[in-house]
């Protein structure tokens, strides 16, 4: 299972690699990282069918997580990847917008990794 994590904070990569080190070691999960919406789209163009789950921050300079979500849901239809949106502001407006654009889940920071692991396993 391949997961693309999109966040402008570079240390997210180290954190995920450590948090999921067992899963990575067992090869039950595979992670890719993009540090902006644009970078994420470029990655998806190259690895369209490999990625099953995308985890994106909303709040990034340049293309926002919501715009990324919109483009993903528009362009990458078969099979549609699961998109989970993370935001620092747990506000209703972002939530509604994300839902409307077809987000599969909505998380607020700080991310609960145990919960996230459960979610990953479900999908």
């Amino acid at each position: 299972m391949k997961i693309l994590v999109v966040d402008d904070e570079r240390d997210i990569q180290t954190l995920f690699e450590q948090r999921f080190r067992k899963e990575i070691k067992e090869k039950s999960m595979e992670f890719a990282f993009a540090f902006s919406g644009e970078e994420a789209l470029t990655y998806l163009n190259l690895h369209e069918h490999e990625t099953v789950l995308i985890l994106s921050d909303i709040n990034m300079p340049g293309m926002s997580g919501l715009e990324l979500l919109r483009q993903i849901k528009e362009k990458y239809l078969k099979p549609p990847p699961v998109v989970m949106i993370i935001t620092a502001y747990g506000d209703a407006e972002s939530f509604d917008k994300a839902k409307q654009l077809g987000a599969d889940d909505f998380l607020t920071k700080p991310v609960d990794f145990t919960y996230l692991k459960e979610k990953f396993k479900q999908s």
Binding site: E9, D11, L15, Q18, R19, N59, A88, Y89, K109, P110, V111, F113
Partner: peptide, 15 residues
């Protein structure tokens, strides 16, 4: 917001 991110990292890495 700016503080939230580094604090999350501090918490996560120490866990």
């Amino acid at each position: 917001h700016e503080i939230q991110n580094p604090l999350n990292f501090v918490n996560n890495f120490s866990e």
